[in-house]
Computed example of a mutant assay.
Amino acid sequence: MATRTEITTKYARQYKKASKKNKGAVLDEVVAVTGWTRDNARRRLTQAAKHPPGPGRQVAKQPRKPRARKYSYDAVKVLQRVWAISGGQCGKYLHATMRILLDLLEAHNELTTGQDRYDKHVRKELLAMSPATIDRYLKPMRARDAINGISTTKPGSLLRSAITIRRAGDEVEDEPGGMNPEWWTR
């Protein structure tokens, strides 16, 4: 791969400077040396001409710089509190009931303006959040408070013994609900 990268870098300069007629000859040389198809060689040459690899360039892409948070830290903390009080609703339900929840929490003095990071600005931010944003901001808290454990239910033998299992050689009963083989031949 390193050799192909060197060849691509070398020919990319020639390919970029060449006229339309000479570009075909450069493509033929690259195809002969690397074994690539013409389309692949053309794509790699134009890419290498636009972004030549530097001497210290690494193969892995550098991580993208995270986008700045749209909502304040106070709004996220109040959101987490409202989510916990609501019983851990999903973002869609929480978004739909956010105004009602905030009104009720204010009426019962669970959220008081000026205390515990809650004020009018935080309320406005909470009401402006989309369901997807609510889910995104609650993701760390959900991961921390995830329900873990083993189910306590065990498979019982009562149900297995109550249901009879028929095999291919068993006789068919002449009761309602049973299948009569004579019906199949009609």
Rank of each mutant, 00 (worst) to 15 (best):
T5M: 13
H121G: 07
R64H: 04
D28T: 09
D28L: 14
V33Q: 13
L158F: 07
T3K: 15
R99K: 12
R186M: 06
M141Q: 10
P66G: 08
P176N: 06
L138G: 06
P63H: 09
A12R: 11
Q47F: 01
R67K: 15
V76K: 14
L105R: 12
A84H: 09
T153S: 13
K10G: 02
L159E: 09
T185E: 09
P155V: 10
K21Y: 07
L79C: 04
T9P: 07
V31K: 14
R166P: 09
Y15C: 11
T113S: 13
D145V: 05
E175C: 10
Q58F: 02
P66M: 10
V172Q: 11
P55T: 04
I163N: 10
V82C: 09
A143Y: 10
A18T: 06
A107H: 14
G54Y: 01
R136H: 05
R4I: 01
P63E: 08
S19C: 11
K65C: 03
A60V: 06
R81P: 00
N40Y: 09
Y15G: 11
S157F: 10
V172D: 04
K61Q: 01
V26R: 14
P66S: 12
A25N: 12
G156M: 12
I7E: 03
S151Y: 11
Y93C: 07
T97W: 02
A162C: 11
V82Q: 10
A107R: 15
A128G: 02
Y137L: 11
G56H: 11
L27V: 00
M141H: 10
G87F: 03
A75G: 07
V30S: 06
G156L: 14
Y137R: 13
R99P: 07
K21W: 08
L94Y: 01
P181D: 04
G156Q: 12
V82S: 06
R13G: 05
D39C: 12
